[in-house]
Simulated assay, not measured.
Amino acid sequence: MASGKKDTVASEDFRIGRTKIAELPKVSLHDHLDGGLRPQTVLELADEIGLDLPADDAKGLEAWFSDHIDGGSLEDYLEKFSVTVGVMQTREGLVRAAKEFVEDLAADGVVYGEVRWAPEQHLTRGLSLDDVVDAVQEGIEQGEDAADARGRDIRVGQLLTALRHNDNARDIAELAVSWRGRGVVGFDLAGPEDGFLPQRHREAFDYLAEQFFPTTVHAGEGAGLASIRSALLDGRALRLGHGVRIANDLDVVSREGEEVQVTFGDLARWVRDREITLELSPTSNLQSGAVTAWGDTMDAHPFDLLYQLDFSVTVNVDNRLMSATTLTRELGLLAQAFEYDLDDLEAFQLNAAAGAFLPVEEREELIEIISEGFHR
């Protein structure tokens, strides 16, 4: 079965029957801007600002990320972002990164996406928080226009991320709310998870709740159930970034073929019954060590267990460059590992559409687009 390393099959070659997965409409909820740059863009932007890189050509740089990303821990996984964040410190760099990001989403068949990134990481060359959000929004709109010119309809919203190990979550929360209706659709908390519970930023989350502003929180990736519990109680999270370790609150009593008998912990039952969206990223979860307790191959990932138990599972890339992947590839690897058919892949997209930070009318429209695309 497939592992977390880069697959040799091109994304566009993944099929179910005669259907190319690349041509199916998709929703991307967990996709980091600084984890999705094109290698050639990193090279060119680095040259413009005089930043040293570990490779001097696009293929070499792509190989550097791919060969050094399987660190087995979230902290090792996050270490590589110093390179991509380093080239995103000017308005020109941010606009270009966001524009190409949207174009790459559209080429992957994404019809709605949410791009998350941490504005506080892009201030070293004199830009303000508002400046960087404005630059990314300009790039997104340029990317949407470019995709439209190629006959691809896509909409992308921003998720502004605060870093859990820093102390300015309230500032980022206020920034996100100030950009509501101008491109920002939600708030995210990310960064090293173990030892940094969401409750550290309760003031920011209280403010967001008072403003009725939606939040997603990275939890259940680098830490366990206590992190997920805090994301829900302190962060009022509507979605869990990864959330894969919710499986730790399940006790598999028996498994016979497709029949699984499980005892639920209170936390797992709450997440399942309240339909809290799980933003699962299979390849990334393997690379970061998030699923080590279950194994190190795709068929060992608890994704299928959670799906069979009716959790609101979604499929995401996390970081396209770092994990050398696409949404098409993630769906293809899951289909290979668990023998999923088109109905299963459609269910994942419908879950993502239902969990999108959009008004209900727009979510319903998105659901129609997905259904029509899968049944065409």
Rank of each mutant, 00 (worst) to 15 (best):
G72I: 12
P54A: 11
R91W: 03
T124G: 02
S128Q: 05
A22Q: 11
W117E: 05
V111L: 01
Y77Q: 06
I21K: 08
D56F: 02
G17L: 10
D104Q: 14
E114N: 10
H68C: 01
L129V: 12
A10I: 02
P25I: 10
S11N: 05
T41K: 01
V95W: 01
D131A: 08
V83T: 14
L94S: 06
R15G: 00
V95H: 01
D108T: 10
D56S: 14
E92G: 14
R125D: 06
V110N: 03
R91Q: 13
H68G: 15
A46C: 08
Y112W: 12
E79H: 12
P119H: 13
Y112S: 00
S28K: 05
D52N: 10
D7F: 09
A58D: 08
V42R: 01
A55Q: 04
G126H: 06
D52F: 00
E141S: 11
D57M: 05
E103K: 05
Q137M: 15
V95E: 04
G86H: 03
G93M: 01
L45V: 03
Y77N: 12
E92P: 00
R116L: 13
E138Y: 00
D134G: 07
T41N: 02
G71T: 09
V9C: 10
A10D: 11
E100D: 15
T124P: 00
A63V: 03
R125L: 15
K20S: 13
R96H: 10
D104W: 03
I49G: 02
S28L: 14
H122G: 00
A135G: 05
D134Q: 08
W117M: 03
V110M: 01
L33V: 07
A46G: 13
L94T: 04
G126R: 03
K6R: 15
A118I: 08
Q89L: 08
P119V: 05
G50T: 02
L129F: 13
L33Y: 05
D67N: 15
E138T: 15
E75M: 10
R125W: 02
I69Y: 08
T19Q: 14
L51C: 04
F14T: 01
A22M: 13
H32P: 10
G126E: 09
V87L: 02
L78Q: 12
F81M: 03
V95Q: 07
L43I: 11
E103R: 09
A63G: 00
Y112T: 00
V83W: 00
E92S: 13
A135C: 11
L74F: 05
A22T: 04
D70C: 06
T19F: 08
K5H: 12
D31A: 02
K59G: 04
L45I: 05
G71E: 07
E120K: 13
E120G: 13
D104T: 11
V85I: 15
G113Y: 04
E44Y: 00
D34T: 09
E48L: 10
F101G: 00
I140W: 01
R18V: 04
D31K: 04
E114H: 07
E44H: 08
G109D: 03
V133P: 05
V42D: 00
Y77W: 13
R38V: 10
S11F: 03
S28N: 10
V111A: 07
V9S: 06
G60A: 09
G71Y: 09
S66R: 13
V133T: 15
L74K: 04
G60N: 07
P54Y: 06
G72D: 11
K80T: 04
E138C: 02
